Simulated assay, not measured.
Amino acid sequence: MSIWESVYVHPLHHPGAAWLSAALVLGGVLRRLPFFYAFLIGALAVSAADAMITGGWSQLGGESHPAYVGLSWFFVLAGDYRVFLLLERYGEPRPERWSGGAGVWVRALGWALVASVTVGIISVSSELFSASARRLYLTYELIALGMVALVWRLRVFGSMPPEDPVRRWLSRVAIFVMVQYALWAGADVVILAGYEVGHLLRMIPNLMYYALFLPVVFLSAPPLEDR
Rank of each mutant, 00 (worst) to 15 (best):
A108H: 07
V151D: 15
R155E: 08
A221S: 12
L192M: 13
I143Y: 05
V151E: 15
P215E: 05
L212W: 11
L200D: 09
R167H: 02
L183M: 11
L192G: 04
I122V: 15
G186T: 04
W169P: 12
V156M: 03
E196G: 10
R155A: 15
V124R: 15
R167K: 05
L183Y: 06
I143D: 04
L183H: 07
F213L: 15
R107P: 10
Y210V: 13
V166Y: 02
P161N: 04
L113S: 13
D226E: 15
Y137P: 02
Y209G: 00
A149W: 12
M208P: 04
P205S: 09
E196P: 00
R202Y: 06
F176K: 07
G110S: 08
P162R: 14
A112L: 02
M147R: 01
S220M: 07
V106G: 10
S123T: 09
G198L: 07
F157D: 07
D226M: 01
R107Q: 14
M208I: 12
P161K: 05
R107E: 13
V190F: 02
V217Q: 03
P161W: 02
E141H: 06
E225F: 05
I191K: 10
F176D: 04
N206S: 15
F218N: 03
L207P: 04
F218M: 09
P161A: 13
F218G: 01
M160Q: 04
A131L: 09
A133T: 13
W152N: 00
S116M: 10
I121A: 15
S126A: 12
A131T: 10
A182R: 03
P162D: 09
Y137Q: 13
L214H: 00
R153M: 09
V119W: 08
A185N: 07
E141P: 00
I175T: 14
Y181L: 08
L150Q: 03
L128Q: 14
A193V: 01
A112N: 03
R107T: 08
V119K: 12
I175G: 08
I191V: 14
A193S: 14
I121E: 11
A193Y: 00
M178H: 06
V217C: 05
G146T: 04
S171A: 12
E163Y: 12
D188V: 02
P215L: 01
L109F: 14
E196C: 02
L207M: 09
L170T: 07
Y195H: 13
F213N: 05
P215W: 03
L150T: 13
F129E: 10
I143M: 12
A182W: 04
A221F: 06
S159C: 07
Q180E: 14
F218D: 02
P161E: 12
D188W: 09
A108P: 11
V177T: 13
